[in-house]
Design a protein around this nucleic acid. Structure first.
Lengths: 187, 187
DNA sequence: TATACTATTGATTATAAATTCAATGAATAG
DNA sequence: CTATTCATTGAATTTATAATCAATAGTATA
């Protein structure tokens, strides 16, 4: 790769990083292409030299993000309860050490739930479902008695909501401390 | 109150309800005044007869919402652990039975975290802090040995994140089941 | 050095959404 | 029943932002 291409790639990444940070703080619609350009320190026009539209820029981030949550999960062959413990631990570890990963986590869940997301994004997210595999694992744990009874889907949601909420906190306020992962509030 | 005033009040509430639902689904910026009017079944112009601007409409909702979380919390004189159990139970109860309350919950946390919120809203939310009292309660519980050790602020965040995440699920998908509140995933 | 390609800017244009407004119809009071 | 006030509309206006573009400066390559 020539020096020029490398430079171009670097600039692209700067834009992606600035966009990611602003998108998770303000949301897609409230983030002005202008804010992003300013954050990077370039003119508004130049940004369109790197990304053909605001939507494409967002799309590029989503594509990057799609692999993140899966890659951070523990192998699902484990004992279910063990899986949940290890996954939570791993996620918090990444989130604590890699701000980019934390932000990606937030971006993905925001995109997943926001009904105002552009159609192209919704399409990308169609196959992005962490609830189904999680629900199955919970059922397995309930069958062998290691996980409490109750609607397994609801429990899956509770699990991911808690993780997602904490990821959001950490991504938005890196200074705020993150609790060690255990199964419970009780000592 | 005359029949006309009553009618006006009813219309105002319709707008508030439609706005609330759209704001929590799409976010403030992505919600078009047009969408709201359409949802209510009125012309765009008429909406401005009831609220002088999109921002004022949002503001009216925030003002309504400010008292909600506090009003749903258990008395803080209880044993800390008991407080957390009862509060979670009460919140889930309200959320399950009063969609409006669930939505308000979501609106408030979205507004609280969104950096793109209009300045007037940020001002309203300045004094809206559930973390400080929660952190103090956790410290009390840690002191008397009923709550696990660890950064109390982080634990407070974890508690509210989980609740907020579930509230969001329930508000956005009323059909999805809600788990019974206990302290733990473990059976 | 000359030529071609790329990065960059600031001004311009297009578009979408918020807000205003003049006109109309419906309800109410006198 | 008449005058007045309020609710309502749809079109006109303003404003904010996305996207384009022509012009300029910089960099690589022959």
């Amino acid at each position: 790769m020539g020096i020029r291409e490398r430079q171009k790639e670097k600039r692209r990444e700067e834009i992606l990083a600035a966009g990611l940070d602003l998108f998770i703080r303000k949301g897609y619609a409230a983030t002005k292409i202008n804010d992003i350009a300013e954050r990077v320190g370039m003119s508004t026009g130049l940004l369109f030299h790197y990304f053909e539209s605001k939507e494409k820029l967002y799309e590029a981030l989503i594509v990057l993000g799609i692999s993140v949550p899966m890659s951070v999960m523990a192998p699902t062959e484990r004992e279910p309860l063990e899986f949940f413990r290890v996954t939570a631990e791993q996620i918090f570890h990444y989130i604590r050490t890699e701000p980019f990963v934390a932000k990606m986590f937030v971006l993905m869940s925001q995109a997943f739930y926001n009904e105002a997301a552009p159609p192209s994004i919704k399409e990308l997210l169609m196959g992005f479902d962490i609830y189904t595999p999680t629900t199955l694992l919970i059922q397995k744990g309930q069958a062998n008695g290691t996980i409490r009874q109750g609607n397994s889907h609801a429990l899956a949601i509770a699990y991911w909501c808690a993780i997602q909420g904490i990821a959001e906190q950490m991504a938005l306020n890196p200074d705020v401390p993150c609790p060690k992962a255990t199964g419970s509030l009780i000592s």
